[in-house]
Amino acid sequence: MPGRVEVGMSGVASLGHGVGLRRPHWDTIFAEADRVDFVEILTENFLGEGGRARRVLEQAAATWPIVLHGTALSIGSVSPLDADYLAGLADLIRATGARWFSDHLCFSSAFGVEYHDLLPVPFTAEALDHVVARVKQVQTIANVPFLLENPSYYVQYAGAEMGEAEFLSTLCARADCGLLLDVNNVYVNSRNHGYDPYAFIDALPLDRVLQIHMAGHDDLGDVIIDTHGAACVDPVLDLYAYTLGRTGPVSTLLEWDNAIPSQAVLLAELERIRAVRPVGARP
């Protein structure tokens, strides 16, 4: 809760409950600043931007704690990390005083092409070695924690040598990085690939979780698409409560990137998430 420092099993104080800073709310969100505990900046929306975006970013940094979240780092790609991107990211971290920065366990570019989407990495020893080395390289750009998010994915490659939870646990330990746990992604993946989301949560290195993402999705029947375009469904809120029961208080952010609603709807959804209490057992 605002004004009270809560620390979970990660040992890092929770920032409370936040939202992503999205353009449709730039004119109005500051008037309700006290309803938001922290703000997440989508790195690519502000990296290298001048004009209005830069002004809004500076105002946000003067109003709330900031965390950065990217989609273009491409930590799993076999192509080299983009040095210009990393330099810009480091500048943005400094300019905003970001508490941490994050991206996804994926590759979003390769062979000179940007996909602007998150393609899964295989859960193999080779991929693990590759990602660990690149995380260590990324960690040198700033003196704040770097977190990797468990992404949603729609295909499972043949030849996996370990499960996703084992991959993430080993990655966090070897690279000494944090985990951004997207609870909606766990739910989406569990439905799409047929596993128990609660057992998956139990298998994660929960002491590495510095931030949680909550979001909505689009259930097409035969597959669930992680759209960030709707309110959270009750099973995701239940899974969040179960997760909090194990992690203790963790900075929790509502992502709503498509079909962005009015600020009133967004903040009402944030209150719905804020009202979730930790539980000790699955429902």
Partner: peptide, 13 residues
Amino acid sequence: ERTDLEALQRHMH
């Protein structure tokens, strides 16, 4: 068949 990381990414590409 197991693919190495680059081969897999070339397939995805």
